[in-house]
Every structure is written in structure tokens, then in C-alpha cells.
Simulated assay, not measured.
Amino acid sequence: MSDAPTDDYEARLRAWAGRELLERRPGPDPVNVPMIRHWVEAMADDNPIYLDDDAARANGRDGVVAPASMIQAWVMRGYAASVRADEDPAGPDELTALLAEGGYTSVVATDSELEFHRELVPGDHVSVEETVESISPEKQTALGAGRFVSTVKTYRDASGEIVATQKWRLLRFRPAGKPAPKALRPRPAINPDNAFWFDAAREHRLVIQRCADCKSLRHPPGPCCPQCGSFDWDTVEAQGEGHVHSYVVNHHPRHPAFEYPLVVALIELTEGTRLITNMTGVAPEDVEVGMPVVLDWIDPDPDLSLPAFRPAAAKER
């Protein structure tokens, strides 16, 4: 179904006001002391009228009574009936199915207002029935677009007398879409010959490999000097200035880690070596061959730092 509710859908929801949602259904067990004992221990409720007949009589009762807050516990179907399909062959109720049709597939309880008519005592057998009071128009909530479904549960004893009522409100909502995590920039291929360069970049240092024998500079890094063949080398730190030797504006193919159009430039450093980087602080149409540039840094995530270059004029401003 479309996110925008249709008039027909709204009418079908409104038609539920006043309808029976749950036929009268007895709880699986009568009120009993063992269950009361488990409840008060779990709730750390030490009121003696729940387990001690003498204390209950001293407080005007005929004997022990059940905590009022246990009213729902006496009609719960139990774990198996709640989760096993063969216990509920009809599947979800009609209203739940109608709400799911509108995308309201998630649920959270928001309000519960109880009114007690008399206390329950061991031997009482409680039943519950439920009617729909109202279904709200669609509301925008922090959880997503949803509708508040208000119902009234009526609890009766074995003779049919009302022992408690409960106004119950749920928010049935359409889960708000979560933004997809930003894609990571593709990882560089790091090996023993170039690891030093990426290590320096993480410290925001742009270094150039230098032959230890003939002192010639080279980039990209490599194990052997192309000028003299020496395997000995060290590094120098670049001044961070140069100019655009060439560039392209990339539109396709697109990768989710980048914003397009993407300027990819071949930068010639004042030291004479060249490297391929992105341009920052400039529109693609303003990039020119020969444009003076200065060093900038891109930190796409905590594990990666890469040099980039921006127009030298931007530094002056």
C-alpha cells in the first residue's frame, strides 16, 4: 500500500470503533496463592495481606487477596499459546492485519489506565473481553508514522460480574527508515614498499621517497631507484605546494563514498614529483592546467588520511 492512506482505508479503520476485538476468554488458571507468591517476590512487594490470612483479616479482608496489578496475569495465555502457530491457526486478528496492510507493523504500548471494582481472592476465575474505542488519524512520531489504537479491556469473574476495566493504548507504527551508513572510501593497496607513505599520511605528512645514493626523488614509491638501481632510500617531507599538471572530472561509474562530479588531478609538486589526488575547495569548471595549488587533507574515516590539493588562492583568503 502507498504511504498516503486512501479514503477507503481510512473508512475501514474508522469502522472498527466500538467493535469487539476479543471475545470473552477465561484465563487458564484461577487466582491462586503460588502465583501470587511468585509475583510479590519478583516485585519485592512485602504487603502481608497477599500471603498471610491473619494480616489480611486484620485489614478487613476475609483472607489473602491478589495484588490488583496482577489482573492481566490471570488471563495471559502463556508462552506456547503466544508464539506457536498451531495454537492460533487463524493467524493475526483482523485489525492487526488491516494495520499491517497500511504498513503499521511495529507496536509499542503507550498508556494503561486501570479501574478496579473489587479485589480478587484465591478461587476467582477471571475472564477478559476487549473492544476498540478509537483509532487515531496517522500521526508523525519519533518512531515513525503511526496510529494510536485505544481499546477497553473488561475483566469479569466466573459469575460475569466486572472486577476491573483497563483502557489500553498502543502505537502501531510504520518504522522510520534508518539512513544507510556512509560507504567507506576504497582502501589503498598497501604493501611493504609503500606502507611508509600511508603511515606518514595518517600523520598529515606528505613525504617523497628519496634514493640514499644518488638523492633522486621518486613517486610512486618503489623498492629500487630507477636512476641508479640502489635499494637504499630515505624520505623527505614535501613543501605541500605545486600546480595542476593535468586533470579529469569523473562522473561515472559512481561509488557511494564519493560526491560527484569528482575532480581527479595529477599534481606536480615543487620538488618535481607528481601524484594523483582529489581537488578540494574548487568547482570542477574552475580547475585549470597550471593552477597553483597547496596541500589539503581528506580524512574519510578514522583509519584513512589522504593528501588532496586546493587552489593556492583559497589559502590566501
Rank of each mutant, 00 (worst) to 15 (best):
P221I: 15
V107L: 14
P179C: 05
V33A: 03
W233Q: 08
G177H: 10
G27K: 11
E203C: 00
S134C: 01
T110W: 08
E285A: 12
V264R: 11
D54R: 15
P188T: 02
P223S: 09
V132D: 00
E285H: 08
V263Q: 07
A283I: 00
R210T: 15
E87G: 09
E133G: 02
P253Q: 01
A85N: 09
G102Y: 12
P253K: 05
E20M: 14
P256M: 02
H252F: 09
P30K: 06
E20Y: 00
D124N: 14
A312C: 10
W39L: 04
A80Y: 12
P89F: 11
D301L: 01
P28S: 05
R118W: 04
W16I: 13
W74G: 00
Y50N: 03
L217W: 07
I162K: 05
A56M: 03
S216H: 14
R84F: 11
E203H: 15
P221A: 13
V65Q: 03
D193Y: 06
A81Q: 12
T270H: 05
V126I: 15
H245S: 04
T141Y: 06
T235I: 11
G177D: 15
P261I: 10
E130Q: 07
M35W: 07
R202N: 15
R274F: 05
T154P: 04
T165M: 10
L206S: 02
M291K: 05
E23I: 07
A42C: 02
N191W: 01
H243E: 10
M1G: 13
A100Q: 13
P122I: 15
G177K: 10
E241K: 02
W197F: 15
R19M: 01
A308F: 13
G60N: 12
D299T: 13
Y260T: 07
M43F: 01
I267H: 01
P302Q: 09
M70G: 11
T277E: 06
E138N: 05
V149A: 07
R14Q: 14
E161M: 06
A238K: 01
P5Q: 03
L217C: 08
T273Y: 01
A189W: 09
R25L: 10
N47V: 09
T131H: 10
S82Y: 10
G240K: 07
R174C: 07
R147V: 05
K215P: 00
G123M: 06
C211S: 14
R25S: 11
L95P: 14
P223D: 08
C228F: 06
D213N: 15
A44D: 01
V282K: 04
D199S: 07
E161F: 01
G242P: 04
A183V: 10
F231N: 03
P300M: 05
H245R: 08
A164R: 03
F198A: 06
A42H: 04
A180G: 05
A109P: 06
R147Y: 02
G18M: 13
K139G: 02
